[in-house]
């Protein structure tokens, strides 16, 4: 029995889930994370960095990784102890101009084999802004229906009001846990 085995067992016991939060810049990733964490969301500048936050929800321990503005993400997919269980892809629903960029980035990411099997939650953020596209249209624009390799869900939300954030998280946790955890 090596350390790896011990850690694996612990992940099961502690019900830990590793989530990677990604998306184009200014999509609202850090705002969502701050909101999750109950922090003040009024002072946010563009993130160039990397933040891990741990939150508890429905008996699960969520380790949420916010990787903002970095070119290479390879380093975050997998390390010694853990692999990524879920992806939270955040979209600025009001930024119509960059939706095709957004689509390409997302599809490029999903072919990465190290992310195989990870559950995908798309947050169509900024629904509170006038002119924001509804989730259904974002789904079309991102061609989510083409994704067969991952379980996915799109959820319209607003990081500022907190609307629908919980619903999205409930779904991703439910999906991941059915895949990797033993339920009692």
């Amino acid at each position: 029995m090596g350390l790896l085995t011990i850690l694996k067992k612990m992940k099961q016991k502690e019900k830990e889930v590793r989530l990677l939060m990604l998306g184009l810049d200014n999509a609202g990733k850090t705002t969502i994370l701050k909101k999750f964490n109950g922090e003040d969301i009024n002072t946010i500048s563009p993130t160039l960095g990397f933040n891990i936050k741990t939150l508890e929800h429905r008996g699960f321990k969520l380790n949420i990784w916010d990787v903002g503005g970095q070119k290479s993400l390879r380093s975050y997919w997998r390390n010694y102890f853990e692999s990524t269980d879920g992806l939270i892809w955040v979209v600025d629903s009001a930024d119509r101009r960059r939706l095709s960029d957004c689509k390409e980035e997302l599809h490029q990411l999903l072919v990465e084999e190290r992310l195989a099997g990870a559950t995908l939650l798309v947050f169509a953020n900024k629904q509170d802004l006038p002119g924001a596209l509804p989730a259904e249209e974002i789904k079309e624009a991102l061609e989510l229906d083409l994704i067969k390799t991952h379980h996915w869900l799109i959820q319209g939300c607003s990081a500022v009001t907190g609307e629908n954030l919980l619903q999205g998280m409930d779904w991703i946790i439910q999906d991941i846990s059915s895949r990797i955890f033993t339920m009692d």
């Binding site: 909101k35 999750f36 964490n37 109950g38 003040d40 969301i41 939150l55 508890e56 929800h57 969520l62 500022v160 907190g162 954030l165 919980l166 998280m169």
Partner: peptide, 10 residues
């Protein structure tokens, strides 16, 4: 707690 934090409504 995620739920509690979200309930704070900022």
């Amino acid at each position: 707690s995620l739920a509690e934090n979200l309930a704070l409504k900022g």
